[in-house]
């Protein structure tokens, strides 16, 4: 097995302050960054705080910033770095720091509460719900979301502009809104919510959310832009506005 020594610069500290600390550890073939962090925990820093669960890219717990890029620790393989390169691991910037690599992501759980639930219409006469594969596929893409909140972390609207947090739900929840908005059986109109409370207009579609998504969901193209387009029809289309004024629906 090919083993090599790597140098890791890991952020250690809490809200009061901290610094990057260097660790030298052995990396074995096939290892991911999370394995190396675990090796540091086991041998050099037992109290190094990091969240993780499944270690298979399915739960979205181990979000952090590796060499400045928001990524999952468990899905970043060590062999993607140049040998001898010092690898910097920092906590997500957008959320308040708890300790070391763990941040307080309750912002996201608060935003989740603001989205009204799925509200289906009446059932079919035979008591079933009929939906077709082509109709559920769009929503299914968004439901692949593992809630790692990397998209929320990278989004400059809140990453660099703290003051926007109350008025902006972030890409993860635009995706949720898009899913419900496109749901063939949902009866609730969420366009007003998306525009006003969730602050979709803040998004300038610079696509970083899509770039960092570990599930490769096309957040911008398939969720945000279609949602923007639906809002255009509802609020910003002069022809639609005019037609409605004269009573055409």
């Amino acid at each position: 097995m090919a083993a090599s020594e790597v140098t890791m610069r890991v952020w250690r500290g809490d809200a009061k302050g901290g610094a990057f600390t260097e660790y030298r550890v052995q990396s074995q073939e096939g290892m991911v960054v999370l394995d190396v962090i675990h090796a540091i925990q086991a041998t050099q820093a037992g109290d190094l705080a990091v969240r993780w669960n499944c270690k298979a890219g399915k739960c979205g717990s181990c979000s952090a910033e590796i060499n400045g890029k928001p990524r999952l620790l468990c899905m970043t393989r060590m062999n993607t770095f140049t040998p001898g390169e010092t690898i910097t691991v920092a906590p997500m910037k957008t959320f308040p720091l708890i300790r070391d690599l763990a941040t307080d992501v309750s912002f996201n759980y608060e935003k989740a509460k603001t989205i009204p639930a799925f509200r289906p219409g009446p059932k079919e006469p035979d008591g079933t719900r009929r939906m077709f594969q082509e109709d559920v596929e769009r929503g299914q893409e968004f439901r692949k979301c593992i809630e790692c909140f990397l998209c929320q972390d990278v989004c400059h609207v809140i990453r660099d502009h703290e003051d926007n947090k109350p008025a902006f739900a972030g890409p993860r929840f635009f995706m949720r809104l898009a899913e419900l908005e496109m749901h063939p059986l949902d009866t609730h109109d969420r366009k007003e919510l998306a525009r006003v409370k969730a602050g979709l207009g803040f998004c300038n579609i610079t696509k970083c959310c899509t770039e960092v998504c570990p599930e490769h969901i096309h957040i911008t193209d398939n969720a945000i832009i279609p949602l923007k387009e639906r809002i255009v029809t509802e609020y910003y289309d002069p022809v639609v506005w005019l037609l409605r004024k004269i009573g055409v629906r």
């Binding site: 639930a117 799925f118 289906p120 079933t128 719900r129 009929r130 939906m131 077709f132 594969q133 559920v136 929503g139 299914q140 439901r143 419900l180 749901h183």
Partner: peptide, 20 residues
């Protein structure tokens, strides 16, 4: 399973539009 569908789960579908 049907209850989950009622709460918003998007199961894969059969040709007839039921849960596959």
């Amino acid at each position: 399973v049907l209850e989950l569908e009622e709460w918003g789960a998007l199961f894969d579908r059969t040709k007839a539009g039921l849960i596959s």
